[in-house]
Design a protein around this nucleic acid. Structure first.
Lengths: 352, 352
DNA sequence: TTGATTTATTGGAACGTTCCATTTAGTAGC
DNA sequence: GCTACTAAATGGAACGTTCCAATAAATCAA
């Protein structure tokens, strides 16, 4: 049975026959205490079942050792990996990060941020929810709390960002498709309230432009960033008068959806229609056919974000440089050459 | 620029021309304060950019509003869904749960639990890491902190458990396979340090026994509980002198791995070899072929766990009843009838 | 008007820790 | 034996809140 009142350093002090200050010193691992006294105290701590009250300590210390991680969608393995990467580095710094999920809901995000601040976190790593208002972080900024954004950025904000090179990733992927002979391409999924969307779409467009694809052959179908969204996009695309032959998808989930929809129609992804994903989640490698995708190293970005945060805390600053992570295209089986284009090219290849 | 020192209720009091006690009352939404005074105070709160210090408050209040959620593997969507289910109910109770990941590492788990306790959580929902020692929760129990286990239980522990009916799920799935004509079955994946493993394996064995499968035809191949583990299991099984024709997999990840390995060998899951998964993660439905699996409703179990926790906190008890969630077999395309058995049965069907 | 009652507000102590300034004990130098 | 110093341990104030008991102001009953 638990003692009614929880033990405090006073109880330990009494038990060990020293003063509360001595106990406090031992707790902090101070070298000022004679080793035998220290071990006497430690024994007492064990005996009374003491648990340290960090809240009380922070009242004096002014800097906690907890860091908040705010994730917009934990069920997306992509973000979960990001979280795991961060945890790895915090762990070795003796910090336990607390993760909170916003489920892509700005209102929930507000609550979560408030709660984390009240808890006295030392810093915040945030992957902001879609639809976050520009002012959502003002309070936190004026409080002087270090914040870094991961994966996503807000339209106008001075908060440092750790994110993959979305533009370049999309460019690479699109160039790959064009190189395979595709001449009518589409960008699947996402919506314009996300900065990431504009970055990836920008890369797609630039690749089309510089590689001689006319603007009217660079299509865009917006949609949910989920499997379901991918299914919808594909159906929209194939219903067009002159359908595209290859798609760059906003993310892997959309790509999986699109491949699924192809199969449903009796078309084989990779041979009848080319698909490239984005993010390269673990599943991409194991899919049938294996998905060609832009790898962004989310765990690595998580680690990077954690390092930046640690540095900010240590140097008591609220500013840091952005970090744009390298990406690379992992070519697998989901995009072969365009058949129709090849035929067309055979007949009229010398005209362009 | 942030004010050097952070604002306290005293600052608000000065700003609003009232006493600190009044401010405190307003903060707590007490009805004792005259509405106009309250709004004057609220304005001051806004003006000075105040953030509530929950640590200081808890020093007096003795019960915090934070609940810790300790998850053994966040990258497994199954556990992520569990977390999301819990969050849903805590949110509507005005509580922000903090999630921490143990990455299936008992040492890490120890750190995480310690940190959460120091933070003064009101309760803990834990999906314990594999290899957790029986004594790992003793300190927490003697501290009188409410704990509930989710999904997994510890061998000998009085802590309430919220988990699916693993035995019955495995029984149903196995019976399904037997009903399809399979006469030589295998259980894939998992290892005996997990209580869940024994439960599921028990259901498998009972089904075999009661439906007339000889013990020597109910095989077991242990392995990692991942895609990779599934690949290994399948290869082991097919290398046997008399290979099985159907497998019940420890979880869906193992099942995906097994299906992958089948494909690699040119065998078609569902027609050449039957596979049933366990957990029914979102992906199961979208796989090719769609995976027959035992649905456990992890989000629902998460909600249940959260409710139990809330009730425990409210009634200041540390005990509660276990809750075994209903399961049901979702039949999809990954297990057709056994071809070989059917032939054999045709010849000697009347003998049994 | 007076006392009783209600309503709104307030000051002080307490919560469990850290940090600073002291005190105490022990050692060294002379 | 005295001072000077170091090492080890200590008491008190402070951190930002809540809660209780107390006060002040307003209303009511007589």
């Amino acid at each position: 049975m638990a003692n009614r009142a929880k033990a405090t350093i006073f109880d330990i002090a009494r038990e060990a026959g020293v003063s509360k200050s001595t106990v406090s010193l031992v707790l902090q691992g101070s070298g000022l205490i004679r080793p035998e006294t220290a071990s006497k105290v430690r024994k007492a701590i064990e005996d009374v079942g003491y648990v340290y009250n960090r809240g009380a300590a922070n009242l004096r210390k002014a800097h906690s050792n907890v860091i908040g991680m705010v994730i917009n969608d934990l069920t997306n393995p992509f973000f979960a990996e990001l979280a795991v990467g961060m945890e790895r580095v915090f762990q070795s710094a003796g910090i336990v990060p607390f993760i909170a999920n916003t489920a892509e809901n700005p209102v929930r995000q507000e609550e979560v941020l408030k709660s984390l601040m009240e808890q006295g976190v030392a810093g915040l790593i945030v992957s902001p929810a879609r639809g976050t208002t520009p002012g959502a972080f003002r309070r936190i900024e004026t409080a002087g709390l270090p914040v870094v954004f991961a994966m996503r950025r807000l339209p106008e904000s001075r908060i440092p960002v750790i994110a993959p090179d979305n533009h370049r990733g999309a460019y690479l992927a699109t160039a790959h498709l064009i190189g395979k002979g595709h001449r009518r391409l589409v960008f699947f999924g996402g919506s314009s309230d996300l900065v990431v969307y504009h970055e990836r779409l920008g890369g797609f467009r630039e690749a089309c432009e510089t590689q001689g694809i006319a603007a009217r052959d660079a299509l865009v179908v917006e949609g949910e960033t989920s499997r379901r969204g991918g299914i919808g996009c594909l159906e929209t695309a194939l219903a067009m008068a002159e359908p595209p032959t290859a798609a760059l998808c906003f993310n892997d989930a959309v790509a999986f959806g699109a491949m699924l929809a192809l199969r449903k129609r009796g078309l084989e992804p990779g041979v009848d229609f080319a698909i490239v994903g984005f993010d390269d989640v673990a599943e991409a490698e194991h899919y049938m056919p294996a998905l060609t995708s832009v790898a962004v190293d989310s765990a690595g970005l998580g680690e990077r974000a954690a390092h930046v945060m640690l540095k900010m805390i240590q140097s008591r600053t609220t500013r840091a440089e952005d970090h744009i992570g390298a990406v690379n295209l992992v070519v697998r089986e989901s995009c072969g050459p365009d058949r129709r284009t090849r035929n067309r090219t055979a007949g009229s290849g010398s005209m362009n």
